[in-house]
Design a protein around this nucleic acid. Structure first.
Lengths: 221, 221
DNA sequence: ATACGTTTTTGAACATGTTCATATTTCTCT
DNA sequence: AGAGAAATATGAACATGTTCAAAAACGTAT
């Protein structure tokens, strides 16, 4: 089905040149003129394939999401407990994005949902929802069975947890980003622990309120 | 002590012109040329007073923080319970920033701590710490007495909670931002409720882990 | 008042993301 | 093959944040 047309190839060449420059010089310092030149064409041509410089990053993000699917499948395959499963997913992502850690800053920088590059934008909806699906699966065959009201929201909540972690990671200046590693280790336990606790009868009132709160937040989307 | 020099006055005039244009046209659409012209000077002059367009927003933010101090004092004055106190602080901020809600997006957009405009930058440290102090005071004379280990971290945690809420508010497209209002109502109760719960013996293990986690996060700052 | 240094102002120049009219190439149909 | 249409490529032009050398205004000591 995938007809690799000449156009696709050119597009890929621009993407490749851009990513290379982003890695070597950083997103801001890499100019569109340089990217186009590296890809062997005039400046304007790059705009025939990408609406903007930002759009190139978006394409990279989309490409990454696709490439990670089998890696995530594999990561979930062996693991049984929710903690292991969530941790495995996080490890896949951090490892995959390692070479482009800084570049993700160009994505994370846009908090405005109207900006196409925002993790909350309409343009990234597909990626976002597919990603949440993975968290749903991480929950589905795990060792924990959260109350129904919470269960519906957990994929989205875990996704948010992941985004926060990645954001922290992007700007983590500790040696080898060991702070993020430590954070993953600890938070995965805490998060899954809280989910387990949420089933306790004593927790019911708080849980109800948290559920309502998250539902309010989701109305904005 | 405050010698209102000619220079200060010019600076204020630029700030005023800028805020006006930001309100009427939005941050992005307001050009530096226009701002300078509005303030009655050549383009370059504005750069003598402000390092960048962003820096103008930062100045506005600093000015706001100062102006809000007495309002926050007053808000805390009457209230007794933690929930009331936190809610009152949030109401002051949302009300104060109402006319410039959209402009705050120019601030919130910068997640990179190295960016001066980031809420986590060195340049905004003073504002941030003063703000946390207010949350410390909101706790101090309230009806709850959280365990010592948690108490140290709570001002910072409440500040983060506030920032999340404001971020949500900035992009809240619901009529009159009623979703944010609902969120304030609910979350203030949940947050303070969780703080109360944290004293329960049953909660001790989770609390210890959360405390450790937050300490890890704070190391990055 | 004059000279001299400091502060402030000017406006042109620069860098870069983006647009666009125009040219070139490629495709399609006869 | 050739004509016309569609896709792709070009590079100059534009807008805007920012810089900068030079000019003007201001302050101060003599």
């Amino acid at each position: 089905m995938k007809t690799k047309t000449k156009s696709d190839e050119t597009r890929a060449r621009i993407l490749e040149a851009a990513i290379g420059l982003f890695q070597r010089r950083g997103f801001a310092a890499a100019t569109m003129r340089e990217i186009a030149a590296d890809a062997g064409m005039a400046t304007g041509a790059a705009y025939y394939y990408f609406d903007s410089k930002d759009a190139i990053v978006l394409a990279f993000y989309e490409h990454s999401a696709k490439e990670m699917v089998p890696l995530l499948e594999e990561a979930l395959a062996g693991k049984k407990t929710l903690e292991e499963r969530v941790r495995a997913m996080l490890e896949v992502k951090l490892h995959y994005f390692e070479p482009n850690r800084a570049l993700l800053g160009a994505l994370a920088g846009h908090t405005d949902p109207r900006n196409p590059l925002s993790p909350f934008s309409a343009e990234t909806r597909d990626i976002r929802e597919r990603d949440m699906q993975f968290f749903a699966r991480a929950l589905a065959d795990s060792n924990v069975k959260p109350p129904a009201d919470l269960a519906d929201l957990l994929p989205a909540m875990l996704w948010m947890y992941q985004m926060g972690l990645i954001l922290f990671w992007i700007y983590d200046r500790s040696e080898g980003q060991h702070l993020t590693r430590s954070l993953v280790d600890q938070s995965a336990g805490v998060v899954t622990g809280l989910i387990k606790l949420s089933s306790l009868p004593l927790m019911r009132p708080v849980r109800k309120r948290v559920v309502k709160l998250v539902q309010t937040i989701r109305q904005a989307a």
